[in-house]
């Protein structure tokens, strides 16, 4: 880690090292100098690759497990998966009114997939980019949830579901009425429209930005810790900085296990709560 970090810093200092690590592998409409996306038609291939890889892994493991499920005494891995599913099912049962067969699988997908994508954050920050650089790929951001596109894609999907179920349950008239008469009654209709619109839009924004912000910040802290001994020249100073870096890295790693789980959990619970609100006709 420190070796790669020193490579980064020798290439133009800490800022560039961090900048480099936070740049996606961009294909399409990209800026040739900074390698940032320049327009809408730019594809972040690393984000897509890792998220789909993790998703495929998840589906593959589920498929393998599904073939040897037993309703007798469950084995180790089945037990583990069952406890996760039971956990999600309990959350749905506790917070979601009524019955919708989509909610629990949606919550489960969010919880496990987001957790897996967050988990990429725990892999040493320079390891995968270093391996990629051997294959001629010079920009790689391994944590899909540190890409706003991923988190907003999920929160927007949830938003679409919120609107869909709101209209389905309350009817189009009921949904529009909610904008007109909530929260201040019929005498403040213009204020109500603004307030409710903000409230509704805040749902996907807060969902997506919360996850993105937490993971981005976490990644940034890992990068800063990685810079500690990287900045120091080989010599006596390294004897101080290197142990410090190891201690800090382990500490942040342990703390981050909590954060990634918590963020995945929050995303799931809020999704269930928002969809539950969409399903209650009396807002």
């Amino acid at each position: 880690m420190s070796q790669a970090a020193s490579e980064g810093s020798s290439g133009g200092g800490s800022v560039q090292y961090i900048q480099h690590h936070l740049t996606n592998l961009c294909v399409g409409d990209c800026d040739p100098v900074t390698h940032q996306a320049a327009g809408f038609w730019a594809l972040h291939v690393d984000t897509l690759f890792f998220s789909i890889l993790l998703g495929a892994l998840m589906v593959f493991v589920s498929y393998r497990l599904g073939k040897r499920l037993t309703d007798g005494v469950p084995g180790g891995f089945q037990n583990f998966v069952e406890s996760i599913i039971d956990f999600v099912a309990t959350q749905v049962k506790d917070t979601f009114p009524g019955h919708n067969p989509l909610i629990a699988p949606l919550g489960l997908t969010i919880f496990v997939w987001v957790w897996l994508m967050n988990f990429m954050d725990l892999i040493p920050v320079d390891l995968l980019p270093l391996i990629a650089s051997w294959f001629g790929i010079h920009y790689l951001k391994v944590v899909p949830t540190t890409d706003l596109n991923t988190t907003m894609a999920m929160s927007l999907t949830v938003f679409v579901l919120i609107v869909f179920y709101s209209i389905k349950v309350k009817g189009l008239g009921g949904y529009l009425k909610m904008f007109l008469f909530h929260p201040f009654g019929k005498f403040l209709i213009p204020v109500n429209i603004v307030m409710t619109a903000i409230e509704e839009l805040a749902k996907p924004l807060s969902l997506g930005l919360r996850l993105f912000g937490n993971l981005f910040a976490g990644e940034l802290v890992f990068l800063l810790i990685a810079l500690l001994s990287g900045g120091a020249a080989l010599g006596a100073a390294l004897l101080i900085w290197f142990p410090l870096q190891v201690v800090l890295d382990v500490g942040w790693l342990l703390f981050h296990i909590l954060i990634i789980t918590l963020q995945a959990f929050i995303f799931m619970v809020l999704t269930i709560v928002y969809l539950g609100m969409a399903h209650t006709s009396d807002h």
């Binding site: 399409g28 409409d29 940032q36 996306a37 320049a38 327009g39 809408f40 038609w41 730019a42 594809l43 972040h44 984000t47 897509l48 998220s51 789909i52 998703g55 998840m58 589906v59 589920s62 498929y63 497990l65 599904g66 499920l69 998966v81 069952e82 599913i85 989509l102 629990a104 699988p105 949606l106 489960l108 997908t109 496990v112 997939w113 899909p144 890409d147 706003l148 596109n149 991923t150 907003m152 894609a153 999920m154 927007l156 999907t157």
Partner: peptide, 28 residues
């Protein structure tokens, strides 16, 4: 920047939900 990746990720997410429903949630 928000790019076309967003659309791709949305599609991936929707496919994921369906796959999880079919292979993980359903049987278990």
């Amino acid at each position: 920047n928000i790019t076309v990746t967003l659309i791709a990720q949305m599609a991936a997410f929707i496919v994921m939900i369906m796959l999880v429903k079919k292979f993980l949630w359903g049987p278990v």
